[in-house]
Protein backbone atom coordinates (compact mmCIF):
# COMPACT_ATOMS: atom_id res chain seq x y z
CA UNK A 1 0.00 0.00 0.00
CA UNK A 2 2.88 2.24 0.92
CA UNK A 3 4.40 1.83 -2.55
CA UNK A 4 1.09 2.62 -4.22
CA UNK A 5 0.72 5.80 -2.23
CA UNK A 6 4.22 6.88 -3.18
CA UNK A 7 3.46 6.26 -6.82
CA UNK A 8 0.25 8.25 -6.58
CA UNK A 9 2.03 11.16 -4.95
CA UNK A 10 4.79 11.14 -7.60
CA UNK A 11 2.22 11.07 -10.39
CA UNK A 12 0.25 13.93 -8.82
CA UNK A 13 3.40 16.02 -8.42
CA UNK A 14 4.32 15.41 -12.07
CA UNK A 15 0.83 16.45 -13.11
CA UNK A 16 0.95 19.63 -11.07
CA UNK A 17 4.41 20.47 -12.38
CA UNK A 18 3.38 19.94 -15.98
CA UNK A 19 0.23 21.93 -15.49
CA UNK A 20 2.13 24.82 -14.00
CA UNK A 21 4.77 24.97 -16.74
CA UNK A 22 4.94 28.62 -17.91
CA UNK A 23 5.99 29.93 -21.30
CA UNK A 24 9.25 31.64 -22.06
CA UNK A 25 8.91 35.40 -22.11
CA UNK A 26 8.32 36.93 -25.53
CA UNK A 27 11.62 38.54 -26.51
CA UNK A 28 11.76 42.33 -26.71
CA UNK A 29 13.70 43.47 -29.78
CA UNK A 30 16.81 45.47 -29.09
CA UNK A 31 16.91 49.02 -30.33
CA UNK A 32 18.87 49.41 -33.57
CA UNK A 33 22.23 51.10 -33.23
CA UNK A 34 22.48 54.79 -34.02
CA UNK A 35 24.24 55.39 -37.34
CA UNK A 36 27.90 56.29 -36.80
CA UNK A 37 28.68 59.99 -36.97
CA UNK A 38 30.02 61.02 -40.37
CA UNK A 39 33.75 61.38 -40.76
CA UNK A 40 35.46 64.11 -42.77
CA UNK A 41 35.48 63.08 -46.42
CA UNK A 42 38.85 63.06 -48.13
CA UNK A 43 38.41 65.69 -50.79
CA UNK A 44 40.49 65.47 -53.93
CA UNK A 45 39.77 69.09 -54.77
CA UNK A 46 39.57 72.38 -52.92
CA UNK A 47 36.55 74.62 -52.87
CA UNK A 48 37.86 78.03 -53.81
CA UNK A 49 36.35 81.19 -55.29
CA UNK A 50 36.50 79.82 -58.82
CA UNK A 51 34.34 76.87 -57.68
CA UNK A 52 31.42 79.28 -57.65
CA UNK A 53 31.86 79.99 -61.35
CA UNK A 54 29.10 78.60 -63.54
CA UNK A 55 28.26 78.74 -67.27
CA UNK A 56 27.69 82.04 -69.02
CA UNK A 57 23.93 82.78 -69.19
CA UNK A 58 23.90 83.99 -72.78
CA UNK A 59 20.93 86.04 -73.89
CA UNK A 60 18.21 83.93 -72.37
CA UNK A 61 16.83 82.30 -75.47
CA UNK A 62 15.44 78.92 -74.38
CA UNK A 63 17.26 76.60 -76.79
CA UNK A 64 19.28 73.42 -76.47
CA UNK A 65 18.39 69.71 -76.26
CA UNK A 66 17.35 69.70 -72.58
CA UNK A 67 15.27 72.82 -72.80
CA UNK A 68 13.57 71.59 -75.98
CA UNK A 69 12.63 68.35 -74.24
CA UNK A 70 11.21 70.25 -71.25
CA UNK A 71 9.21 72.54 -73.53
CA UNK A 72 7.96 69.57 -75.55
CA UNK A 73 6.78 67.79 -72.36
CA UNK A 74 5.56 71.08 -70.93
CA UNK A 75 6.91 69.92 -67.60
CA UNK A 76 9.83 70.99 -65.44
CA UNK A 77 10.52 68.45 -62.70
CA UNK A 78 12.08 70.12 -59.67
CA UNK A 79 13.31 68.57 -56.43
CA UNK A 80 12.45 70.74 -53.43
CA UNK A 81 12.11 70.53 -49.68
CA UNK A 82 8.66 70.54 -48.09
CA UNK A 83 9.80 70.78 -44.49
CA UNK A 84 12.36 73.58 -44.53
CA UNK A 85 10.26 76.41 -43.18
CA UNK A 86 10.85 79.71 -45.03
CA UNK A 87 12.92 78.02 -47.76
CA UNK A 88 10.58 75.29 -49.06
CA UNK A 89 7.72 73.93 -46.99
CA UNK A 90 4.10 72.87 -47.29
CA UNK A 91 1.67 75.43 -45.98
CA UNK A 92 -0.88 73.33 -44.04
CA UNK A 93 -3.57 75.93 -44.69
CA UNK A 94 -3.25 76.03 -48.46
CA UNK A 95 -1.32 72.76 -48.87
CA UNK A 96 0.98 74.60 -51.30
CA UNK A 97 4.77 74.42 -51.12
CA UNK A 98 6.23 77.85 -50.56
CA UNK A 99 9.40 79.61 -49.45
CA UNK A 100 12.48 81.45 -50.66
CA UNK A 101 13.70 78.56 -52.84
CA UNK A 102 10.27 78.14 -54.40
CA UNK A 103 10.36 81.79 -55.61
CA UNK A 104 13.31 80.82 -57.84
CA UNK A 105 11.50 77.73 -59.16
CA UNK A 106 8.49 79.83 -60.15
CA UNK A 107 10.70 82.43 -61.84
CA UNK A 108 12.49 79.76 -63.88
CA UNK A 109 9.19 78.07 -64.84
CA UNK A 110 7.64 81.34 -65.86
CA UNK A 111 10.66 82.31 -67.99
CA UNK A 112 10.60 78.90 -69.69
CA UNK A 113 6.91 78.56 -70.46
CA UNK A 114 5.43 82.07 -70.60
CA UNK A 115 6.04 82.43 -74.33
CA UNK A 116 4.64 79.01 -75.23
CA UNK A 117 1.23 78.54 -76.80
CA UNK A 118 -0.40 77.41 -73.53
CA UNK A 119 1.35 79.97 -71.39
CA UNK A 120 2.57 79.21 -67.87
CA UNK A 121 0.67 77.64 -65.00
CA UNK A 122 2.57 76.58 -61.87
CA UNK A 123 0.47 73.52 -61.04
CA UNK A 124 0.56 72.26 -64.61
CA UNK A 125 4.06 73.08 -65.81
CA UNK A 126 6.15 72.61 -62.68
CA UNK A 127 6.20 69.19 -61.07
CA UNK A 128 7.44 69.46 -57.52
CA UNK A 129 9.17 66.42 -56.10
CA UNK A 130 9.71 66.57 -52.38
CA UNK A 131 13.17 65.16 -51.71
CA UNK A 132 15.53 64.78 -48.78
CA UNK A 133 19.03 66.22 -48.65
CA UNK A 134 20.43 62.77 -49.40
CA UNK A 135 18.31 62.48 -52.57
CA UNK A 136 19.67 65.64 -54.17
CA UNK A 137 22.69 64.25 -56.02
CA UNK A 138 21.38 60.72 -56.86
CA UNK A 139 18.15 62.10 -58.35
CA UNK A 140 20.22 64.37 -60.58
CA UNK A 141 22.10 61.31 -61.89
CA UNK A 142 25.03 61.55 -59.48
CA UNK A 143 26.25 58.72 -57.24
CA UNK A 144 24.15 57.64 -54.24
CA UNK A 145 25.53 56.81 -50.77
CA UNK A 146 26.80 53.44 -52.08
CA UNK A 147 28.49 55.10 -55.05
CA UNK A 148 25.95 53.79 -57.59
CA UNK A 149 24.59 56.03 -60.30
CA UNK A 150 20.99 56.04 -61.50
CA UNK A 151 19.38 57.88 -64.42
CA UNK A 152 18.49 61.48 -63.54
CA UNK A 153 14.85 61.84 -62.48
CA UNK A 154 14.85 65.59 -61.92
CA UNK A 155 15.57 68.57 -64.14
CA UNK A 156 16.56 70.83 -61.25
CA UNK A 157 17.17 70.68 -57.51
CA UNK A 158 16.36 73.87 -55.62
CA UNK A 159 16.79 72.79 -52.04
CA UNK A 160 19.37 74.74 -50.01
CA UNK A 161 22.13 73.09 -52.05
CA UNK A 162 25.69 74.16 -51.27
CA UNK A 163 28.07 74.50 -54.23
CA UNK A 164 31.43 72.79 -53.70
CA UNK A 165 34.12 71.29 -55.91
CA UNK A 166 33.29 67.66 -55.08
CA UNK A 167 29.69 68.12 -56.13
CA UNK A 168 30.76 69.88 -59.32
CA UNK A 169 32.39 66.58 -60.29
CA UNK A 170 29.03 64.82 -59.96
CA UNK A 171 26.52 67.39 -61.20
CA UNK A 172 26.37 70.92 -62.63
CA UNK A 173 25.45 74.05 -60.68
CA UNK A 174 23.96 77.40 -61.47
CA UNK A 175 25.67 80.52 -60.22
CA UNK A 176 25.28 81.25 -56.50
CA UNK A 177 21.83 82.66 -55.67
CA UNK A 178 22.16 82.94 -51.91
CA UNK A 179 25.12 83.03 -49.51
CA UNK A 180 24.27 81.09 -46.38
CA UNK A 181 26.55 80.18 -43.45
CA UNK A 182 26.64 77.28 -41.03
CA UNK A 183 25.54 78.31 -37.56
CA UNK A 184 24.11 76.87 -34.35
CA UNK A 185 20.59 76.99 -32.91
CA UNK A 186 20.32 76.61 -29.12
CA UNK A 187 17.80 76.02 -26.41
CA UNK A 188 16.84 79.57 -25.36
CA UNK A 189 18.47 79.36 -21.90
CA UNK A 190 21.89 78.60 -23.43
CA UNK A 191 21.92 81.64 -25.72
CA UNK A 192 22.95 84.34 -23.21
CA UNK A 193 26.22 82.66 -22.24
CA UNK A 194 27.02 81.22 -25.66
CA UNK A 195 30.48 82.21 -26.86
CA UNK A 196 31.18 79.82 -29.69
CA UNK A 197 31.38 76.07 -30.12
CA UNK A 198 33.54 75.73 -26.97
CA UNK A 199 30.33 76.40 -25.01
CA UNK A 200 28.99 73.13 -26.39
CA UNK A 201 31.50 70.75 -24.73
CA UNK A 202 29.67 67.58 -23.65
CA UNK A 203 26.45 69.00 -25.08
CA UNK A 204 24.36 67.12 -27.62
CA UNK A 205 24.21 68.74 -31.04
CA UNK A 206 21.93 67.43 -33.79
CA UNK A 207 22.18 67.52 -37.58
CA UNK A 208 20.72 65.35 -40.36
CA UNK A 209 22.18 61.89 -40.93
CA UNK A 210 25.35 62.04 -43.00
CA UNK A 211 25.42 65.83 -42.90
CA UNK A 212 28.80 67.54 -43.26
CA UNK A 213 27.58 70.08 -40.67
CA UNK A 214 28.37 67.52 -37.96
CA UNK A 215 31.88 67.06 -39.32
CA UNK A 216 32.43 70.81 -39.42
CA UNK A 217 31.20 71.52 -35.89
CA UNK A 218 33.58 68.97 -34.40
CA UNK A 219 36.55 70.01 -36.56
CA UNK A 220 38.92 72.29 -34.56
CA UNK A 221 40.44 73.59 -37.83
CA UNK A 222 37.08 75.18 -38.63
CA UNK A 223 36.56 76.45 -35.09
CA UNK A 224 34.61 73.36 -34.12
CA UNK A 225 34.75 71.49 -30.82
CA UNK A 226 35.69 67.76 -30.76
CA UNK A 227 34.05 67.37 -27.31
CA UNK A 228 30.57 67.84 -28.75
CA UNK A 229 28.32 64.77 -28.62
CA UNK A 230 26.77 64.45 -32.05
CA UNK A 231 23.21 63.18 -32.53
CA UNK A 232 21.64 62.50 -35.92
CA UNK A 233 18.07 62.80 -37.18
CA UNK A 234 16.45 62.22 -40.56
CA UNK A 235 16.39 65.95 -41.30
CA UNK A 236 16.61 69.33 -39.57
CA UNK A 237 12.93 69.30 -38.59
CA UNK A 238 13.60 65.93 -36.97
CA UNK A 239 16.35 67.67 -35.00
CA UNK A 240 13.83 70.30 -33.87
CA UNK A 241 11.64 67.50 -32.52
CA UNK A 242 14.61 66.14 -30.58
CA UNK A 243 15.31 69.64 -29.21
CA UNK A 244 11.67 70.02 -28.16
CA UNK A 245 11.71 66.60 -26.53
CA UNK A 246 14.88 67.48 -24.59
CA UNK A 247 17.01 64.90 -26.39
CA UNK A 248 19.52 67.47 -27.71
CA UNK A 249 20.79 70.91 -26.65
CA UNK A 250 21.52 72.43 -30.02
CA UNK A 251 21.12 72.02 -33.78
CA UNK A 252 23.65 72.96 -36.39
CA UNK A 253 22.97 73.74 -40.03
CA UNK A 254 22.63 76.56 -42.50
CA UNK A 255 21.40 79.84 -41.05
CA UNK A 256 18.43 79.80 -43.44
CA UNK A 257 17.30 76.41 -42.16
CA UNK A 258 17.89 77.34 -38.52
CA UNK A 259 15.89 80.55 -38.97
CA UNK A 260 12.98 78.43 -40.17
CA UNK A 261 13.28 76.12 -37.16
CA UNK A 262 13.52 79.02 -34.68
CA UNK A 263 10.39 80.56 -36.21
CA UNK A 264 8.45 77.43 -35.24
CA UNK A 265 9.55 77.34 -31.60
CA UNK A 266 9.74 80.33 -29.25
CA UNK A 267 12.22 78.47 -27.03
CA UNK A 268 14.79 77.97 -29.77
CA UNK A 269 17.26 80.74 -30.55
CA UNK A 270 19.92 81.34 -33.19
CA UNK A 271 22.52 83.66 -31.62
CA UNK A 272 23.24 86.58 -33.98
CA UNK A 273 26.56 86.98 -35.76
CA UNK A 274 29.18 88.57 -33.45
CA UNK A 275 29.91 92.18 -34.22
CA UNK A 276 32.86 94.25 -33.01
CA UNK A 277 34.20 93.06 -29.64
CA UNK A 278 31.07 91.11 -28.77
CA UNK A 279 31.97 87.55 -27.70
CA UNK A 280 29.00 86.38 -25.62
CA UNK A 281 25.47 85.76 -26.78
CA UNK A 282 26.60 85.75 -30.41
CA UNK A 283 28.32 83.39 -32.84
CA UNK A 284 30.89 83.36 -35.62
CA UNK A 285 29.68 81.42 -38.67
CA UNK A 286 31.44 78.06 -38.90
CA UNK A 287 31.51 77.72 -42.69
CA UNK A 288 30.26 79.50 -45.81
CA UNK A 289 27.47 77.76 -47.68
CA UNK A 290 26.96 79.26 -51.14
CA UNK A 291 23.62 77.99 -52.53
CA UNK A 292 23.27 77.02 -56.18
CA UNK A 293 20.64 75.26 -58.25
CA UNK A 294 21.60 71.69 -59.13
CA UNK A 295 21.32 70.40 -62.71
CA UNK A 296 22.23 66.95 -64.11
CA UNK A 297 25.79 66.78 -65.42
CA UNK A 298 26.17 67.79 -69.06
CA UNK A 299 22.95 69.79 -69.39
CA UNK A 300 24.73 73.07 -69.97
CA UNK A 301 21.85 74.58 -71.94
CA UNK A 302 19.60 74.33 -68.91
CA UNK A 303 22.31 75.70 -66.58
CA UNK A 304 22.78 78.69 -68.85
CA UNK A 305 19.05 79.35 -68.94
CA UNK A 306 18.80 79.12 -65.16
CA UNK A 307 21.70 81.55 -64.83
CA UNK A 308 19.93 83.90 -67.15
CA UNK A 309 16.86 83.86 -64.90
CA UNK A 310 19.04 84.37 -61.80
CA UNK A 311 20.67 87.33 -63.51
CA UNK A 312 17.23 88.82 -64.15
CA UNK A 313 16.37 88.44 -60.46
CA UNK A 314 19.70 89.50 -58.99
CA UNK A 315 20.92 92.24 -61.35
CA UNK A 316 17.92 93.74 -63.14
CA UNK A 317 16.37 96.72 -61.34
CA UNK A 318 19.08 96.47 -58.70
CA UNK A 319 18.06 92.94 -57.80
CA UNK A 320 14.45 93.97 -57.11
CA UNK A 321 13.02 90.50 -57.66
CA UNK A 322 15.65 88.87 -55.43
CA UNK A 323 15.05 91.43 -52.70
CA UNK A 324 11.30 90.97 -52.91
CA UNK A 325 11.75 87.22 -52.34
CA UNK A 326 14.31 87.75 -49.57
CA UNK A 327 12.21 90.33 -47.78
CA UNK A 328 9.14 88.12 -47.95
CA UNK A 329 10.78 85.04 -46.45
CA UNK A 330 14.13 85.66 -44.77
CA UNK A 331 14.54 89.33 -43.84
CA UNK A 332 12.60 88.98 -40.56
CA UNK A 333 14.62 86.18 -38.98
CA UNK A 334 17.99 86.94 -40.65
CA UNK A 335 17.99 90.73 -40.99
CA UNK A 336 18.71 92.71 -44.15
CA UNK A 337 20.49 90.82 -46.93
CA UNK A 338 22.07 91.39 -50.29
CA UNK A 339 22.22 89.16 -53.34
CA UNK A 340 25.52 87.37 -53.98
CA UNK A 341 27.84 88.14 -56.86
CA UNK A 342 27.16 86.05 -59.96
CA UNK A 343 30.30 84.38 -61.31
CA UNK A 344 30.81 82.73 -64.69
CA UNK A 345 33.89 81.25 -66.31
CA UNK A 346 33.27 77.60 -67.18
Amino acid sequence: MNTRWKLSVVASVVAVLLAGCGYDDTPVPEKPDEPPPPSAAESECDTVESTLESYDPGIGVPTGPTIERILRDHKLVVGVSADTYLMGSRNPETNRIEGFDIEFVRAIGEALFEDTEDGFEVGRDIQFRVITAGDRIPLLGGPDAEGEKHPAELDLVVRNFTINCQRWEQIDFSAEYYHATQKVLLRAELEETYNGTQSLSDKKVCAPIGSTSLVNITDPKLGGNPDIEVVQATNHTGCLIKLQQGEVDAITGDDTVLAGLAAQDPYAEVPPTCEGDQVEGCQVPITDEPYGIGVPKGQEDLVRFVNYVLEQMIIEDGGAEWRRAYNRWLADPLGPGDPPELRYGR
Binding site: P27, T84, E93, T234, G238, L240, Q264
Partner: peptide, 30 residues
Protein backbone atom coordinates in the same frame (compact mmCIF):
# COMPACT_ATOMS: atom_id res chain seq x y z
CA UNK B 1 0.86 76.17 -39.99
CA UNK B 2 4.32 74.90 -39.03
CA UNK B 3 5.96 72.11 -41.07
CA UNK B 4 7.34 70.55 -37.88
CA UNK B 5 3.79 69.17 -37.55
CA UNK B 6 4.25 67.01 -40.66
CA UNK B 7 7.59 65.85 -39.28
CA UNK B 8 6.01 64.86 -35.96
CA UNK B 9 3.50 62.79 -37.92
CA UNK B 10 6.23 61.32 -40.09
CA UNK B 11 8.37 60.35 -37.05
CA UNK B 12 5.26 58.91 -35.36
CA UNK B 13 4.35 56.82 -38.42
CA UNK B 14 7.93 55.69 -38.73
CA UNK B 15 7.98 54.57 -35.08
CA UNK B 16 4.97 52.32 -35.73
CA UNK B 17 6.92 50.51 -38.43
CA UNK B 18 10.44 50.53 -37.01
CA UNK B 19 9.70 50.18 -33.28
CA UNK B 20 6.18 48.84 -32.73
CA UNK B 21 6.09 46.36 -35.60
CA UNK B 22 9.19 44.39 -34.48
CA UNK B 23 7.70 44.04 -30.98
CA UNK B 24 4.33 43.00 -32.42
CA UNK B 25 6.11 40.63 -34.80
CA UNK B 26 7.75 38.90 -31.82
CA UNK B 27 4.40 38.73 -30.03
CA UNK B 28 2.70 37.19 -33.06
CA UNK B 29 5.52 34.65 -33.54
CA UNK B 30 5.61 33.68 -29.86
Amino acid sequence: GFPVGAEYLSVASDSVRTEAQPILGNLVTA
